[in-house]
């Protein structure tokens, strides 16, 4: 496959797939992850969107290249023969004609570079974070899954990877009563049970493929869903008001150490507390229509792009004119 083929057919196809994933991301972030929907379903939706940034470009490439399975058919030959060289030809036969306008190529290349930089930056940050978490496990006291860190702040973390563990600071443990300690442990254990540290890492990496404001929004929605799912798991065993009180207690403890430090608004924890003390609003009748639609849409899109190959070329030519 020549470089021209990659530039003129595979690359634009991948870009269209990527743009579709961004649109899907906006739809999900804006309309399909409200707090009324159960956290597990919200997580699945965000996970699907995150994967779409990889899957949709692949489907688009497959669909465009699939047209080349019929190079000698009248369907393909008549199109490539009748249209001018200025018209976009998303097929291997005509790629050498240099169909993609230069400015579109430059924009697409710029977008690719930005996505790659974002992915590289996230990979680097993740690597550094995992090194530090691993170091904290090594420096912690205790063995097995529950580790104690000598620190006066109120810290509770679920850490995944090869050595899943819950890290709890002595400041937190000393400030909570035994019942509250059990609640914190149950919450962090729920994270480990659900494999959240690893899933979290995967989602963070995949969301690096989205434009930053959208990625941030999806990441916040993901983190909230993750925490709320762990809260729900705890309320199976503990009184939800006790869980809310424990959250508030830990939040209060953290305020003591925030003086002068950089901080963010605690809207997320407040929302979690409100959710715990309100009568449950999660809609148990939520159907997985979105998930099924997405799954069915993938092969449908592949067929549609293949069948509407020429219409898409005409549309792209029109857009690029």
């Amino acid at each position: 496959m020549t470089a021209m083929v990659v530039l003129d057919t595979v690359f634009p196809a991948a870009m269209i797939g990527w743009l579709l994933s961004q649109v899907l991301g906006v739809v999900i972030a804006k309309w399909l992850t409200p707090s009324g929907i159960a956290p597990r379903i919200r997580q699945q939706r965000i996970l699907m969107v995150a994967f779409s940034a990889v899957l949709l470009p692949l489907v688009m490439i497959a669909a465009i290249l699939a047209a080349n399975l019929f190079p000698s058919s009248e369907w393909m030959a008549s199109h490539c023969g009748t249209h001018s060289h200025d018209h976009i030809h998303a097929c291997l036969n005509s790629a050498e004609q240099g169909a993609l306008p230069a400015w579109q190529g430059a924009v697409a290349l710029l977008a690719l570079v930005m996505v790659m930089v974002s992915l590289f930056r996230t990979l680097l940050t993740e690597r550094r974070l995992q090194q530090r978490l691993q170091a904290l496990i090594t420096l912690s006291n205790g063995q097995g899954r529950f580790r104690r860190l000598q620190d006066t702040r109120a810290v509770a973390l679920a850490v995944g990877g090869s050595e899943p563990a819950v890290l709890l600071s002595s400041g937190l443990l000393n400030s909570l009563n035994p019942h509250q300690r059990r609640i914190v442990l149950a919450h962090e254990s729920a994270h480990l049970r659900h494999g959240d540290p690893l899933r979290n890492r995967l989602v963070v990496l995949l969301l690096a493929l989205f434009v930053p404001p959208l990625a941030k929004r999806l990441r916040t929605a993901w983190e909230n869903a993750l925490e709320e799912a762990a809260d729900d798991a705890v309320t199976q065993r503990f009184d939800r008001f006790d869980v809310a009180e424990t959250l508030l207690r830990v939040l209060s403890l953290q305020q003591l150490h925030l003086k002068g430090a950089q901080s963010v608004n605690s809207g997320d924890t407040q929302t979690r507390i409100q959710r715990l003390i309100s009568p449950h609003q999660a809609d148990p009748t939520t159907r997985r229509w979105f998930e099924w639609t997405c799954l069915l849409a993938l092969p449908a899109m592949l067929v549609a792009v293949l069948v509407q190959h020429h219409a898409i070329e005409t549309l792209l030519s029109w857009l690029g004119a």
Binding site: T122, L129, L136, V155, R201, R219, L226, A261, S263, S266
Partner: peptide
């Protein structure tokens, strides 16, 4: 480092009981 810089960065995978940088 973990609860401050990485959490404020927003692009790191940390599952904390309560975000250490949350203020109220």
């Amino acid at each position: 480092d973990v609860m401050g810089r990485f959490q404020l960065d927003g692009a790191a995978s940390i599952a904390a009981f309560v975000q250490a940088t949350e203020s109220l």
